[in-house]
């Protein structure tokens, strides 16, 4: 975690832009939270209709570990939307999003139960490191 699912109009964003957005999202999330980059998941799905309940054609559906302040979540979402807008050339007014929360203890990633935000020890940054060497 986190997971960011981007629902976009069919064929609206080329592959290289998706990769740039994913890298940008990772920069935003990790820059604000300090989370290790390898935990950030980003995916894109073509939508056959408007991607959000408010009718915006582009919708970022995020899931984070629970426990961060509303201010931090706003900061993350604003950063994601700005990144998406800049890379994809889509006006901010056409991008909607939300960040939902799930308790960290409800996730297992890289073989461990995720720690609560703010309770990450030094080992958090090395989980799975050996696998990637």
């Amino acid at each position: 975690m986190p997971l960011y699912k981007c629902h976009i109009p069919k064929n609206s964003i080329p592959s290289d832009a998706k990769a740039q957005i994913a890298e940008g999202f990772t920069d935003v999330h990790c820059g604000i939270t300090g989370a290790p980059r390898h935990f950030v998941h980003v995916m894109f799905f073509d939508a056959s209709k408007a991607g959000s309940e408010d009718g915006a054609p582009y919708f970022i559906d995020g899931i984070n570990r629970a426990g961060r302040s509303a201010e931090v979540k706003h900061q993350i979402l604003d950063g994601l939307k700005a990144t998406f807008s800049e890379v994809a050339g889509v006006p901010l007014s056409e991008i909607s999003g939300r960040i939902g929360e799930i308790p960290a203890s409800h996730f297992m990633e890289e073989g461990v139960i995720l720690p609560e935000p703010g309770e990450e020890g030094a080992e958090w940054h090395t989980v799975g490191a050996a696998l990637r060497e």
């Binding site: 998706k18 950030v40 998941h41 894109f44």
Partner: peptide, 15 residues
């Protein structure tokens, strides 16, 4: 997730 549409840590994902 369609090919070229899934990423982990900013890199293509197999997860």
């Amino acid at each position: 997730v369609p090919e070229g549409s899934g990423f982990k840590g900013g890199e293509p994902s197999r997860t």
